[in-house]
Design a protein around this nucleic acid. Structure first.
Lengths: 167, 167
DNA sequence: TATTGTTATACTCTATAACTATA
DNA sequence: TATAGTTATAGAGTATAACAATA
């Protein structure tokens, strides 16, 4: 906070990387992940695991391929991530009867219960991290990010309406 | 692209992680970093090195502490990053006469020349990545991200006016 | 005593290739 | 032959602690 940033000179133009929205995005992405990590560690979950559980709860059971696409995570990495979640009883893997190569992954009851706790913590992180924006601005940001995600085919749905209460 | 995402069922509510702006931000941050990496590899730079060079060019010489704060990177990691850049003759390290503990880091002529190439490539990545947004929306996104960065003290200046031409 | 930079290290994340079982 | 999942592994990013030089 008050780290007395002395040796930061002239700063004439005042922009720096800020010119590149992409670099700014990358930096903030890492920052928010760090925040998530410190908030989730006491609960025993990693940010990526949390994303997976949230997706499974909200989207329902799906194949590992589909989940990997939704999270933008490599299939091989998803395997070990799911191994851990399965070991903790937070998800279930079962063969898809229609195509026995596939695993249908779904969140367990225990997972659903845990994700309620987690969502509370995550929401708090979001509130802290985006505290510089008011409610409207934050909604705008979310919408813009969602559209970028959509256009880059990172598989993100529009931020339309939430319907059900879950927690 | 056309990967025929079969096993993606119901999708009733349609939101998923999208609820959490933070998770969305984290995911996009990784995605854009990946894009940067593939575009920068042929030039021989990593995304983080590129950020460092851009910052040094735009903000001028500064201590490693200040640079670390600007990039939101740990001091110990910055050392090895700068070692590589120094080895390639892209930056210079010299002792601060006023405080001999400090290294003043500045971009070299060779670094400045390279960064012009790089900026071209980076700008292209930005254009591709944010293609889903029009010019105004992209400016809005940049502004919102910059303000979040500011409020989280990740050290980012306001996106005011660029003044000088550099490339 | 505190700070700047450094080194070493351990841990996580990411990407690639090779394998299996199913189709 | 192609696809879903798995395994192993190498590479990159990150965080921590201990240290030397300087303040």
């Amino acid at each position: 906070m008050s780290t007395d940033v002395t040796t930061k000179p002239a700063s004439r133009s005042g922009d720096g990387l800020a010119q590149h929205t992409g670099f700014l995005l990358a930096r903030l992405g890492r920052a928010v992940t760090r925040h998530y990590r410190s908030a989730l560690t006491p609960i025993g979950l990693k940010p990526r695991q949390t994303s997976a559980l949230l997706t499974l709860r909200d989207e329902g059971a799906m194949s590992q391929q589909a989940l990997g696409a939704a999270l933008d995570i490599d299939a091989s990495n998803l395997v070990v991530l799911l191994n851990d979640l399965e070991g903790g009883g937070l998800i279930l893997r079962r063969r898809d009867p229609e195509d026995r190569r596939r695993h249908l992954v779904e969140i367990s009851k225990r997972g659903s219960k845990l994700i309620c706790e987690v969502e509370h913590a995550s929401t708090q992180i979001d509130d802290e991290f985006f505290a510089g924006l008011d409610s409207d601005e934050r909604a705008t940001l979310h919408d813009l990010l969602a559209r970028v995600a959509q256009s880059t085919d990172v598989s993100a749905r529009g931020a339309s309406g939430d319907d059900e209460e879950r927690c």
